[in-house]
Write a protein that binds this DNA or RNA. Sequence first.
DNA 1: TGGGATTTGTTCGTATGTATT
DNA 2: GAATACATACGAACAAATCCC
Lengths: 230, 230
Amino acid sequence: MSERKNRTIVVYQALRRAILEQALRPGTKLPEDAIAGQFGVSRTVARRALEMLAADEIVDLRPNRGAAVAKPTLEEARDTFQVRMDIEHLIVARVVGKLTRKDLKRLEASVDAEERSHHEGKEDYIRHAAEFHILIAEMAGSPLFLRYLRSLVSRSALILGLYGRPHWGDCNVHEHRELIEALGGKNVARAQKLMRAHLDAVLTRALEGVHTDAGKGISDILAVYADAAD
Amino acid sequence: MSERKNRTIVVYQALRRAILEQALRPGTKLPEDAIAGQFGVSRTVARRALEMLAADEIVDLRPNRGAAVAKPTLEEARDTFQVRMDIEHLIVARVVGKLTRKDLKRLEASVDAEERSHHEGKEDYIRHAAEFHILIAEMAGSPLFLRYLRSLVSRSALILGLYGRPHWGDCNVHEHRELIEALGGKNVARAQKLMRAHLDAVLTRALEGVHTDAGKGISDILAVYADAAD
DNA sequence: TGGGATTTGTTCGTATGTATT
DNA sequence: GAATACATACGAACAAATCCC
């Protein structure tokens, strides 16, 4: 019963993790045969897993030319962060003042896990940091927003890995705790402001001191915030 | 070159139209074999078409149990309209004051087409009405928002067909023209208000005088607006 | 430009899982 | 509750497209 294998999902999740933890860098080709061989499955399931990753927008899938880890342009990176900011604001608006004590406990537990991973130097603190945002989205009670945010968070991580320095992610913990406190309160605008500041800080930390190929790519991504400033 | 067949896409679009024009009612099972036979393709391409429709959320695809035309619950219907409202507001905020004369012409042409179809009694005025909203989304310049809205518009149509009366869609034309005028102006809040009023009116027209199985389903959908009132 | 190697696209037979009587 | 009918999941082989020398 719970012995659901579903090889497709297994392959999908493994590849997803590999991409988000940057074991597979953007641009890496993902031939169906190689994946099928690696995981001991047929090309059919490898292909379906790739399609699912493409739906998440972390894999590029071009007809007759195969799959590769997505390598978003700066334009696409901008779009991702801009849209993510908007969606997170809407989610925040929905949860502020409506969280139960239990909800808040879950959020705190998530941050605790993130902090532990971070201290232990594990790479999966990235996953925990992402999970924090996804938890909030779950609490908004909208399956659609949850789906959107899942994809946006994955894509954000990919982009930060692509354009940012190795150890972006440092020290979300304090900001996350602050956010929890605000989400437990009743002031929507304040919580939104904190969310904005947090996402802004993540991006800034990831990008500061980085020189991309284009040379002036960083400010191009940061320009997102100039546009959206209220 | 432009002779791209791509049978998958053909099947996908045909099914999509059939669903949106209510030739295929919600709940209808869609076995791979039947579709493959009907369109003269293999099960593989039938399956891929179904997966694409599932991504649009107008087909339900349950593991080992096959595909069926989606039959959203009232809860899901609420979510769809609520999210759509939010997304359309964001899109409006992005386009107001930034449309070129050419953009406005395209919007007007779309409404003209809708009006013609409507006068001629053709069923595809539904498609034109949907296209109007999608055009606006295109002009927002965000691939992600465009993708979201595409799916939301399809799903909205499905839901209105499911819970509403046969001829919902009547008389969008005037409201659409009003919207164009506001989008060409500079007042974001006003344009958003018109968008809200328009979507509200569509829902009201579709649902008025309708009795669902549940009996009180209508007010449940309309409660969306009570929540979101500003 | 061309041809061979490699990879994707497609088909369809079989295995496995689900629903029904 | 078991057997049967049915639909999907999977995989191996073939066809077509692309890439690379």
